[in-house]
Design a protein around this nucleic acid. Structure first.
Lengths: 253, 253
DNA sequence: GTGTTTATCGTCAGGAAGACGACTATGATC
DNA sequence: GATCATAGTCGTCTTCCTGACGATAAACAC
């Protein structure tokens, strides 16, 4: 087979899909949009869209993220950062039958954002919302009685599950959990991020010792806050360290 | 923009590229093929090819792996396993200018294999070889004098670097290092895999204690061998555990 | 003030890892 | 056959990290 002969390879459409995660009300939530047209009309799906002709994959993902969430600017200095949110490639999904109409390869991206204001629907979505991932994934025991929400369109449940698992494991050995926090945050707020993402509860004292003892993880800003109630807590900013060594340990069970 | 209108999205070619790693003579080596036609004619590149019309991405990668290395069969029971080799998706590369002729998105895959016989060139490659990754990547200080080999074609140096980094980090917390070993191997052979991939030297006594003490990592077969010389060593097979907890620790510096 | 909430410091026991000594069982060499 | 080199295996000791948990501190609500 002669490569690059235009007649020698099949044409593909390439899209980016986004797993946008945030922590709201002590739960890990993902951004979902309602599909306005077939297939899967009326069903929830991950936001996404076609990659443009002259556009890099990460640029397409950043553009979609901005369009869907209302994030305003993209800092060219840090390609993994879109206006405070972390953005990274997740994986690529290319089953020949994943879209019933044509061959579509989707390069999924994972975005981690602080608690954002209400989503701004864009593109072909009739509406958008933050939904707890356990609800979207129908994790065991969620929802009373037999009320099972419709599964996500296409293979988006799989993509979401992969994105959630990536986030859950990556906050173990990197400082990525700070991407869920506002620019300044307390140790307790960071702990609640870990608790929401892992769906566990952590000992506040050991957590405090661990994160403040890991060099480069947190830098104190000098300020304090009582926005969580109780005794005033020191405010921190994310430090320069990206890899935590030794890592945070996810409790068993 | 109306989605899925065939005139509304730009056409892409989709390829798979392979980072095939093995350990030969105490060095981490990658499979490289020489390009038979422009662009980059005569330069070394990663093996790869177009994804076919009805083919999944992982199937395309497995097919290319078989074609390039002469591995014979694909076990459908374990999609991450191609005839003893481990295969997983690595990342997707889609810079609009990464191929000078047209828009090509490449889904790179990472394969880890035991020391294989001489590679079997296939497809459009004039020849193929196992090359130490430090040589292909021109890592610091490799090669005497100023003799710098030509860099890999396209963005393959980046892809290879990403694949090597993935392998280096993944053997820390998974049992993947056994994918570099034959079906039965000794603790010393496994240690030499770690030493080659990380380019470090490890204490044989602590390594022995660690791997034999991690439940599910190794299962003794009962046999022994002296193929490495010295006192006979127990033979092991890879156990069922895939995640190591606690992980192997890569020494600092 | 009393109670509640959250933050922060300290102590202690158990486990894992690095450093390294000691012993064992082969093949190679004299 | 004795000696040596090579690799494998078992133990010990110290240090560090973690989990469990007691105790104190500083705010707010009543």
């Amino acid at each position: 087979m002669s490569p690059y002969d235009p007649s020698a390879f099949p044409p593909f459409a390439v899209t980016v899909d986004l797993v946008v995660l945030t922590v709201r009300r002590h739960a890990l939530c993902a951004l979902a949009v309602r599909r306005g047209e077939p297939p899967f009309q009326g069903r929830w799906a991950l936001p996404g869209g076609f990659v443009r002709d002259d556009e890099d994959l990460s640029s397409a993902a950043a553009r979609e993220l901005i369009e869907e969430t209302g994030l305003i600017a993209h800092d060219p200095a840090d390609p993994d950062q879109v206006n405070g949110a972390h953005l990274e490639q997740l994986a690529t999904y290319g089953d020949p039958k994943r879209d019933p109409r044509m061959r579509v390869v989707s390069v999924a991206h994972l975005a981690l954002a602080p608690d954002l204001p209400a989503p701004r629907p864009g593109g072909d979505a009739h509406s958008a919302r933050w939904a707890p991932v356990e609800e979207l994934l129908n994790e065991e025991g969620y929802g009373r009685e037999g009320e099972q929400p419709a599964p996500l369109a296409f293979d988006h449940a799989q993509i979401l599950a992969d994105g959630v698992e990536r986030a859950r494991s990556k906050i173990e050995y990197s400082s990525l959990a700070t991407a869920f926090c506002p620019p300044e945050f307390t140790v307790g707020e960071l702990r609640r991020v870990y608790e929401a993402v892992w769906a566990v509860s952590l000992d506040p004292r050991n957590f405090h010792r661990k994160v403040t003892g890991t060099p480069g993880f947190l830098v104190p800003t000098g300020g304090t806050t009582t926005r969580q109630g109780g005794r005033p807590a020191q405010l921190f900013r994310a430090g320069g360290a990206t890899l935590l060594n030794p890592p945070m340990l996810r409790p068993e069970v």
